[in-house]
């Protein structure tokens, strides 16, 4: 589903190189975790997948279902089925969460040549999914992410994800800022979306999220490169020994 080939990327403004040759293949149904120390390029990778303009690809390619993402705009990638759950969801004053959900869903449906959903049909979908995530109607009426607590913001991200039904979900530090109860709600939401034809890339600094969202493959990212790949036990090892080994390995 996702194939990253020798990806090199830098910050467009000051040409700082962040990614230095990433190779990664994710098949449908798989959950891959990407772990790494701060500044290793984890968030950059998620932004580059989603198409943020602040970065420049200097080498390599990203294929999504066999097609290169590089020439696609962010909204085209979204319509093609790529979803990024933001580490820091953005506030949009004055736009009710509900309005935003409907606009996004219908924009994607339109881009895919599907008809717009009727309001009752849309409401039914939202209500069902919101209930699973403990999101009240009241919260949906509030402006998007404005004044939301950390947990509310993350639940709102997962609600969007389940509503938009993407093929590939990229979760960027979804556990940051969550207490254990909120983490469980969010993880349950993510797990419900696991399916044989959907893939996930879970980016995290800590192992604890992976207790709840159990990955098939774990990668360690350090200084813009994947330095180790293993099974879920790799995450436990990292938890025990920290990243020092890998940072050191790089430096050597």
């Amino acid at each position: 589903m996702l194939e990253i080939k020798n990806l090199h990327a830098r910050i467009a403004e000051d040409e700082t190189e962040i990614l230095r040759g990433i190779d990664l293949t994710v098949k449908p149904g798989e959950v891959h975790a990407i772990m790494g120390p701060n500044g290793s390029g984890k968030s950059t990778l998620s932004y580059i997948l989603a198409g943020k303009e602040d970065y420049e690809i200097t080498e390599g390619d990203i294929l999504f279902n066999g097609e290169s993402l590089l020439d696609m705009e962010a909204d085209e990638r979204a319509a093609a089925g790529l979803f990024l759950a933001f580490q820091y969801p953005i506030e949009i004053p004055g736009v009710a969460t509900m309005t935003f959900l409907k606009t996004a869903l219908n924009a994607q449906r339109k881009a895919r040549g599907e008809g717009e959903l009727s309001t009752p049909e849309f409401m039914k979908r939202v209500k069902d999914k919101a209930a699973e995530l403990n999101i009240t109607m009241d919260m949906l009426k509030r402006p998007l992410n404005v004044g939301f607590s950390g947990g509310e913001k993350k639940r709102s991200e997962i609600l969007q994800m389940s509503l938009l039904e993407p093929k590939l979900c990229v979760l960027d530090e979804t556990d940051s800022g969550l207490d254990i109860d909120a983490l469980r709600i969010v993880a349950d939401g993510v797990n419900r979306l696991r399916s044989p034809d959907r893939a996930m890339v879970v980016i995290t600094h800590y192992q604890r999220l992976l207790d709840h969202i159990v990955p098939d493959v774990v990668h360690v990212l350090s200084r813009g490169r994947i330095v180790k790949t293993g099974g879920k036990e790799l995450a436990l090892e990292l938890e025990k020994n920290g990243y020092a080994d890998y940072v050191g390995e790089q430096a050597a």
Partner: peptide, 8 residues
Amino acid sequence: FYCQQRGL
């Protein structure tokens, strides 16, 4: 970017 990521 956030809106575009959601398909707008």
